[in-house]
Simulated scan of single mutants.
Amino acid sequence: MGLAKTHTLDALSVGHIDHESGDAIARFPDRVLIVKATGRGSYARTTPDRYGFPRLRRARKKQHFGYVTGDLVRAVMPSGKWAGTWTGRISVRARGQHSLTASVGRINLSHWNLRLLQRGDGYGYTAQPEAAPSISQKNS
């Protein structure tokens, strides 16, 4: 069919398409959703050392100050080194100084500067532009 080799266009091409009778793919996606499994944390109550013996105890709670690890949040930092607005996945800490994974890396910030956008469901979502087929390929 002369299409680019991407997973999305391969999925559109599965099945019988009879070009002689006029069958064709009507639309090509310009953006695709990328889903990555990020997990929902672990139930482990202790952190083992290299021999497997318990080294320290973990907190019983997973939710701190209304946030859970994996939540998508927007942080508005009024001043300081990381002043600005940041969006990303959060790792919670018991004392309220959470860690945000943004496009520039990890940022440590207070729970007061956060606003919840989406609860963490164990997956990370991004939209990515799809390689569009060229004009000569659409006519074939």
Rank of each mutant, 00 (worst) to 15 (best):
Asn139Trp: 08
Ser103Gly: 09
Asp49Ala: 06
Arg60Ala: 11
Gly2Met: 10
Pro78Tyr: 05
Gly80Phe: 04
Lys138Arg: 15
Gln128Leu: 10
Leu3Trp: 09
Ile107Ser: 01
Gly96Lys: 05
Ala59Pro: 04
Val14Glu: 15
Arg115Glu: 15
Leu72Met: 06
Asn108Gln: 13
Thr87Ala: 00
Ala59Met: 06
Ala127Gly: 08
Val104Gln: 12
Leu12Thr: 06
Thr47His: 06
Tyr43Cys: 08
Pro133Asn: 10
Arg31Val: 15
Arg45Gln: 11
Arg95Ile: 11
Ser99His: 07
His19Trp: 09
Ser140Met: 10
Gly39Ile: 00
Ser99Trp: 01
Gly124Ile: 03
Ala94Val: 11
Pro29Leu: 07
Ser134Gly: 11
Asn113Ser: 12
Leu3Thr: 09
Glu130Pro: 03
Leu12Asn: 01
Gly105Ile: 01
Ala24Gly: 08
Ala37Glu: 15
Val73Leu: 00
Arg40Glu: 10
Asn113Val: 11
Lys138Asp: 08
Ile25Arg: 02
Leu56His: 13
Gly120Pro: 00
Arg31Trp: 11
Thr69Phe: 01
Arg50Tyr: 07
Gly70Cys: 03
Gly122Phe: 01
Arg58Phe: 04
Lys81Leu: 09
Ile90Asn: 06
Gln137Ile: 05
Pro129Lys: 09
Leu114Thr: 02
Leu56Val: 13
Ile135Phe: 12
Arg115Met: 10
Val92Ile: 02
Gly2Glu: 12
Asp23Trp: 06
Gln137Leu: 08
Val14Tyr: 14
Thr87Ser: 08
Gly105Asp: 04
Gly2Gln: 09
Thr6Gly: 06
Leu12Glu: 05
Asp30Met: 12
Val35Lys: 14
Ile25Asn: 05
Thr6Leu: 00
Leu72His: 07
Val14Ala: 11
Thr8Tyr: 10
Gln118Asp: 12
Ser91Thr: 14
Tyr51Lys: 15
Lys36Ser: 07
